[in-house]
């Protein structure tokens, strides 16, 4: 991957809160330009912290991050011109209407494309005169996405915007996001712990567990490179992690190309791949980076 292609980078990134709590530990990541990357992990995996370091809201304790080649902590103003961001559980101003929020965005970022954002909201049927406090959680997330898209930034950092949405709202949100990313050639990083939703929308997958990158691959590559052993049947030499299946059986994720003819293994779904890696990360120490 050439330097030109890497639009989001983290090098040996560690972030500590207080004296002992490490949210991120030695993260090395390079996300290429274009497409949607899912950042998946359980609560407290460090997803928000990682995104906030790219937005310039958190200062790395060690290591470095770059956004389009810019260090967002040292030059946040310049870095943020490349970024559209949706915070976790986005909140709107209670007393402002949806159109007021678009006006506000224009005031704060003169290059904001109000008409584009308004069109996205029209597609979703969200009226401009509706007050922030009267919008549902899903509508608030849609407005937040429209605000992020209206920046026409080349990078979209979306911090668990799907968490509070019902399935239909999640579907609409992802549809809007994928359409916009494909049309603009933007790069989106979508943090979530709902694997089934991101599977349809994302090109790449990063699994983060206890502050470490457990997997970073394309979705297709991840699906092609992993298989599942049930109750220890089959070769489990390359076992990644084991977890309980829906029927109470023991599922073990193994490195094994799907093309290989190996008895006792079945293809793994993306959710099973994520679960296998999360199971492998469960034993990692939470404190004290070497």
């Amino acid at each position: 991957m050439s330097g030109e292609q890497r639009i989001l980078e983290a090098q040996a990134l560690s972030k500590r809160y207080g004296r002992r709590t490490w949210a991120l530990q030695g993260i090395d990541l390079a996300i290429p330009r274009g497409g949607i990357t899912a950042l998946v992990g359980p609560n407290a995996a460090g997803k928000s912290t990682l995104i906030k370091t790219w937005v310039g809201f958190e200062r790395p304790t060690r290591g470095a991050v770059r956004v389009s080649g810019i260090d967002p902590w040292k030059d946040r103003s310049r870095a943020l011109t490349h970024v559209g961001y949706i915070p976790q559980s986005p909140s709107l101003y209670d007393t402002l209407s949806v159109d007021d929020h678009l006006d506000l965005a224009v005031q704060l970022r003169p290059a904001f494309d109000r008409a584009y954002a308004r069109d996205r909201l029209d597609e979703l049927g969200i009226p401009g005169d509706q007050q922030g406090r009267s919008l549902s959680g899903g509508q608030q997330a849609q407005v937040a996405l429209a605000l992020a898209l209206g920046t026409r930034a080349e990078i979209l950092l979306l911090d668990e915007p799907l968490a509070s949405l019902d399935p239909l709202a999640r579907r609409e949100f992802l549809h809007l996001l994928t359409d916009a990313v494909r049309a603009d050639g933007a790069t989106a990083l979508l943090a979530s712990h709902i694997v089934t939703d991101v599977e349809q929308a994302c090109d790449r997958l990063i699994v983060l567990g206890v502050g470490r990158v457990l997997l970073h691959d394309t979705v297709a590559g991840a699906l092609a490179g992993h298989r599942l052993a049930i109750d220890g049947n089959g070769p489990v030499g390359d076992a990644i992690g084991s977890f309980a299946g829906p029927a109470g059986d023991r599922l073990t994720l193994v490195h094994q190309p799907r093309s290989a003819e190996v008895g006792g293994l079945r293809p793994a779904t993306l959710e099973e791949i994520v679960l296998g890696y999360l199971a492998s990360g469960r034993v990692a120490p939470r404190e004290a980076v070497a």
Partner: peptide
């Protein structure tokens, strides 16, 4: 929690 959205819009 509106500051995060606003501060990301105003570099």
């Amino acid at each position: 929690r509106t500051a995060a959205m606003a501060w990301a819009l105003d570099p």
